[in-house]
Design a protein around this nucleic acid. Sequence first.
DNA 1: TTGTATGCGTTATCAT
DNA 2: ATGATAACGCATACAA
Lengths: 342, 342
Amino acid sequence: MSHNTKTTIYDISEKLKVSAATVSRALNDNPKISIKTRELVRKTAKEMNYHQNRLAQAFQKGKTNNVGVVVPFINRNFFSSVIRGIEEKLSPHGYHVIICQTHEDVKTEKEQIKILLGTQVDGIIMSVSKTTQNTDHIKEVLDQGKPLIFFDRRKDIPGVSSVTINDFEGAFAVTEHLIKQGCENIAYLSGDRGLDIYAERYRGYLAALKAYNLAFEKDYVFDLSNTTIESGTFAVKNLWNLNKKPDAIFSSGDYAALGALQELKRKNIKIPQEVCLSGFSNEAFTEYTEPSITSVDQTPLLMGKIAAEVFLEQIQGSQTLTIEKKVVLKPGLRIRNSSKRK
Amino acid sequence: MSHNTKTTIYDISEKLKVSAATVSRALNDNPKISIKTRELVRKTAKEMNYHQNRLAQAFQKGKTNNVGVVVPFINRNFFSSVIRGIEEKLSPHGYHVIICQTHEDVKTEKEQIKILLGTQVDGIIMSVSKTTQNTDHIKEVLDQGKPLIFFDRRKDIPGVSSVTINDFEGAFAVTEHLIKQGCENIAYLSGDRGLDIYAERYRGYLAALKAYNLAFEKDYVFDLSNTTIESGTFAVKNLWNLNKKPDAIFSSGDYAALGALQELKRKNIKIPQEVCLSGFSNEAFTEYTEPSITSVDQTPLLMGKIAAEVFLEQIQGSQTLTIEKKVVLKPGLRIRNSSKRK
DNA sequence: TTGTATGCGTTATCAT
DNA sequence: ATGATAACGCATACAA
C-alpha cells in the first residue's frame, strides 16, 4: 500500500518497455505520443504511485513556477490581504507563492532573499523592512535577471516596478477631514520617515495644515520608531504634558492609534467630542474598538492583484528589456466614530 | 557590475585551474582542502559573484532543508503566532519555512501538499482545513517517508504526531468561570464539530454544566458552520427570539464572540451585568474591544516551537521507526471585562 | 511515433 | 590535498 521508494520515469519506462523519454513526453501530454501510449503511461504511473519530482524538473528547466513574497509580518491585515490578492491572481497561471516574513529585520530580509534566489524562485514581490538602508541584497534579484516588484514600501531602485497607494493623498484627506470637524491643533504620530510611505504621509499632513492656514506646531509631531500600541500610549502621555493640548490625533499607523485611544480613555477624554482620532491602514480592529477608529483603506487585495499582474507582464515580456512600471492606487478614507462629530 | 549569466563552480574551477570538485569542497569548508585553496576559492567566488544553486544541491542531496507549513489562514493571530514559533525553533537548525494557506478549502489543501511534496520539502507541519474529510492526500506525506506533524487541528492518522491544547479543559474552565459569575443559562456557539477541537470544546461545555448541575438546554446551542463575526451576530439575533434569554454566551471562536458582542450592544444589553460573554483563541482584538472579551489562550508560540521540535526529532530519528508523539498543552483562561462581574 | 544522448549544478565515491 | 567521474530525475535536440 505504501511505497516508500519514490518511483521515477525510469521505473515506468522499464515496466512498460519504452524509453524514459517517451514516458516523460506522455506524462506531459505531448501530442507526438500516441494517445494509446499516453493513456497507458498515465495509468501505469498512477498504479505505481508515481509523482513528478518538481525539483528535478525545475532544476533542468531553470524555472520553478514559484514566486517569493517577502513581507515584514504576515499577521497584519494589510499584508495578509495583499498576499491573498497575489495568490488569487497568480494561482490560475500555475504559479505558487512562497511567503517569507522579515520581522522588520534587514538581516532576516537579506537571508530570506538569498534563500529564495538560491531556491530559484522565478521572481520576487516584496515590501521592504523598516530597517533596510543598503539595498544590495535586493539588487541581487535584478542581477540574476529576475523580476522584482515592490508593493507599499518601496525603495528607489532603477528598473524595479512598484505598486503603492498615494500616501500623500490619504494623509491629506485625513487631516482635511479632521479640520472640517473643527480641529485646529492636530497632533501627528509619525512612523519612521526613512520609509517613503511615512515620509509621504507626513507631507500630506503638512500640506493640509498649510492649505487650511493652520499653524504647524513642532511639539505636536511625535516620532515613533515603531507604530505599536505602546508607542501610541506613550505619545499621548507626552502630548498631554504640553500646555496646549491637541484637539485631534492623526496616527500614521493603526496600532499606535489604538494605543492612543486606550490612553485617552484612561484619561477620561471624550472621543470625538474633546479629541478626534484617526489611524492609517484600516486594520480589522479599527471597526471593533469603542469608538471605532477612522482610518485609511489601502485596498490591499487590489494592490496584491496588480503586483501579481505586473509580475506576469515582466516574466512574459522580453528578458532583455526591463520596463519600470509604477502603479499608484487611490486610498480610501474610512470615517468612523472616533472622528465623527455630527 | 551586474552579471546576468549565473556563475557555477565550473566557472570558478576554470579560472583557478583546479577541478570543480575542489571548488565544491572548498566552498563547503572541507578540511581536506588546504586553507590556502579554500581562501582563494572563496575570494574568487565572491569576485565572480557566485551564488550557490540550492536547487541543484537539494536535487542531488535529496534534501531541501525546507519544511512546509500548511494552515487555513495566515491572518489569524493564532496561526501566525504558531508559524512564528516554528520559525524561531527551526531557523537555527538551517531549516526554512514555506508557508501555505488553504483558506479552509480541501481542494486547495490537496494542491498545496502536492506542490510541497513535489518540491521536496523535508517534512510538513500542518493544521487541517475545516472541510477536510478524506485524508489520502495527507497520508501521501507519510508514504513518501517524510515527517508529518499536526498542530491544533488534527486528524486520526496512525504514525502522525500532533501538538494540541486540551480543548476540553479550556472549554470546561470557561464554562465553570461563567457559572461562578452567577450565570445559569449559558448559550454555546459551536464551530463545526467535525473538527476535533470543536467537538472537544463542546464536550467541555457539557461536562461543566453537568458538574454544576445546570440543565442542558438544547435551544442554547447554536451550530455555526463558520465562526465569523456575522455568524455570531446571527446567533444572538436568534437566541433573543427565545422566551427564556440566556444570561451568558460562550462562543467557541473569538470572531463569533465579537459578532455577538456587537449585536448585544446594538440591543443595549449590558455586558457583563445582563449577559456574560467569552470567546476562545485569544485573538489580539479581544483585548481591545469594549468591553474586552474573555478568551482562552492556546499558547500558539509554544505550540509552534514544540511542533518544530517534534519535527526535528523525527527527521533526526531512524527513518524506519516512526514514533507517534502526542503533546497536549495546557490552555490559559484569560478573564476580561466581558465576564467579570465583581 | 519513439529512442538515444546530453545537460542542468552539485556532491560523493573512488582514485591518485 | 586534489582530480575524474558518476549520479540525482527530468526534458529536449537530434536521430531513426
